[in-house]
């Protein structure tokens, strides 16, 4: 802190003068000598004041040059919607899987889907949040390692797949099972119809996620191999929704 408290700025690292300084948000250091008594800086430009009032205090409004809150915490609703659409329509999504979507490691959507799944099970009288988190965590770690091993890389080293990429893909492709648990709120799934629906939704999730991994890992003729562990992973959740 001694650097910031030195009024002359004669020691410590280089600080540009205030007229050349890039605005750094509300937490940036404003030298006492650079602003006059009325709040204007050396160029005579006063910073935009924060909006006052109770509602503004509770809102996300800040300085104009600050990025939006969702951007700061890394939530991109456009990506969430795009990935959800791809999962909902896995057959025609083959050509839409851009690098931007594949490299996205958004966890907001997966979190919502897992919570929804747990909530619908709760509404059906089943409290399985612990199982959901446990199986999801264990399955994600295992499938991430397997995917890294299976990643086809010309240099022979494992694919540069990030853990949150895997978690994001697995979480987004979990959406069909949310539909299953939603149906389970109104109908009993422990019958022939429930088993058939469970099989359909598990196949849907597996199809979507294997398409993602196939593109992400650039697998050649190995989609069935990556799909099989994914099928087992999603089957566990379907069994949870039907039987437990």
């Amino acid at each position: 802190m001694s650097y910031y408290q030195n009024p002359k700025g004669s020691s410590g690292f280089y600080q540009p003068s205030s007229q050349f300084a890039f605005p750094q948000g509300s937490m940036s250091f404003q030298g006492a000598s650079s602003t006059s008594a009325n709040g204007a800086d050396s160029l005579g430009i006063s910073p935009d004041p924060l909006p006052s009032g109770l509602f503004n205090a509770l809102s996300t409004k800040g300085y104009p040059h600050e990025p939006p809150l969702l951007e700061e915490i890394g939530i991109n609703f456009a990506h969430v919607i795009t990935k959800t659409r791809i999962v909902c329509n896995p057959v025609s999504s083959r050509n839409i899987l851009s690098d931007e979507i594949l490299g996205d490691s958004d966890l907001a959507g997966p979190l919502i889907f897992f919570l929804l799944f747990g909530l619908f099970l709760l509404l059906a009288g089943k409290v399985h949040f612990g199982y959901i988190y446990g199986v999801a965590l264990f399955g994600t770690v295992s499938l991430h390692n397997l995917s890294k091993f299976m990643g086809n890389n010309e240099s022979g080293s494992p694919a540069k797949l990030q853990f949150f990429n895997t978690a994001s893909v697995l979480g987004y492709c979990f959406l069909p099972l949310c539909f299953l648990s939603l149906i389970g709120v109104f109908l009993s799934l422990d019958n022939t119809l429930g088993y058939a629906l469970g099989a359909i939704f598990v196949a849907w999730s597996t199809w979507s996620s294997s398409a993602f991994f196939n593109s992400l890992l650039q697998l050649h003729d190995a989609r069935a191999l990556i799909a099989y562990p994914l099928l087992i992973f999603y089957t566990v959740f379907a069994l949870m929704a039907i039987f437990v």
Binding site: N145, L146, F149, M150, S157, P158, H220, A222, A224
Partner: peptide
Amino acid sequence: LLNYYSRYFQLTTADF
């Protein structure tokens, strides 16, 4: 090392 075993997971559906 764990990465050593990566080569044993790179096979195709036809091989399997």
